[in-house]
């Protein structure tokens, strides 16, 4: 089975461990990733807060390429990318005028018909049963706190994915791996995201809250499906510990890491050894 793949900047940059993890994990599930040819940045926060046209045109160009190459479904593992792509796709599908305008700007016909999926949705499509069958090493010792962050489930009107205030789709997958999914408070709180560049205090504060609550509810790891969340919880964890004088030592996994490990993949293979906090 083949699916389109839009890595976005993060997965080719600071979070290339996420890319390795996704590729290995989905590969074991028989899913071949076809990377989008000549893709460009989704625009992220920078575009949508400064220039609405640019914020549509950038994802529109990626969607146009997907349409040209006959990709009708595409995985965007970064929630920021998937959100921008979905938003643009919906706007395009809804307006004739916008389709014309964008087709002109990106110099290619674009209709917005490509389905864009996040990582959880790809697992859902593969199906719990298939995942369960592929598990060779049930994660019986794992007590995972599923952390969705903000963008995976929001804005709900557009993403139409899970309950945006109390999502449970990641938990369902985690349980299929034989792990325990603990209930905790901050599943959909913000990690501080890009603030990590300009206002580190905010990020450290938020990350500390999240890490503290996770531990208080008895989790022994956190599962994420967002490169930004991973950076702020994993890379910044040492800074959090230093600032608050505590020891969290909380490993942060990508969802694909856990699925992969349950299927027998090694951590090193998936780039888990590149994480800052070592289990």
């Amino acid at each position: 089975m083949q699916i389109g793949y839009y890595p976005g900047c993060a997965l080719h940059g600071s979070s290339n461990d996420y890319e390795r993890s996704v590729r290995v994990c989905l590969g074991r599930l028989g899913m071949e990733l076809r990377e989008l040819d000549d893709w460009v940045c989704c625009g992220a926060t920078a575009a949508h807060s400064l220039n609405a046209k640019l914020a549509t045109a950038l994802p529109a160009r990626n969607l146009a390429i997907a349409e040209r190459d006959g990709i009708d479904q595409m995985l965007a593992p970064c929630p920021m990318c998937s959100m921008e792509l979905i938003k643009a796709g919906q706007a395009l599908a809804a307006s004739d005028a916008l389709r014309r305008e964008m087709s002109e700007i990106v110099e290619q016909k674009v209709s917005g018909a490509t389905g864009v999926l996040n990582l959880i949705q790809v697992f859902q499509q593969i199906g719990l049963e298939r995942i369960q069958k592929a598990v060779v090493q049930p994660l019986s010792q794992t007590k995972a706190a599923c952390y969705y962050g903000c963008l995976l489930v929001r804005p709900p009107e557009q993403l139409r994915f899970d309950d945006c205030e109390n999502p449970t789709s990641m938990e369902t997958i985690i349980k299929a791996l034989g792990a325990e999914a603990i209930d905790w408070n901050y599943k959909t709180e913000c990690c501080g995201a890009g603030m990590t560049m300009c206002n580190e205090d905010t990020v450290l504060d938020l990350a500390h809250k999240i890490l503290t609550d996770v531990a208080a509810h008895g989790a022994n790891c956190v599962v994420v499906a967002c490169p930004m969340c991973h950076v702020n919880l994993d890379m910044k964890q040492a800074d959090v510990e230093r600032r608050y004088g505590v020891t969290h030592r909380m490993p942060i996994y990508y969802l694909s890491d856990l699925v992969g490990m349950a299927m027998g993949a090694s951590g090193a293979e998936m780039g888990v050894d590149r994480h800052y906090v070592v289990a």
Partner: peptide, 8 residues
């Protein structure tokens, strides 16, 4: 009517 997961 589905909503308000934030209130627990």
């Amino acid at each position: 009517y589905k909503g308000y997961g934030e209130y627990g």
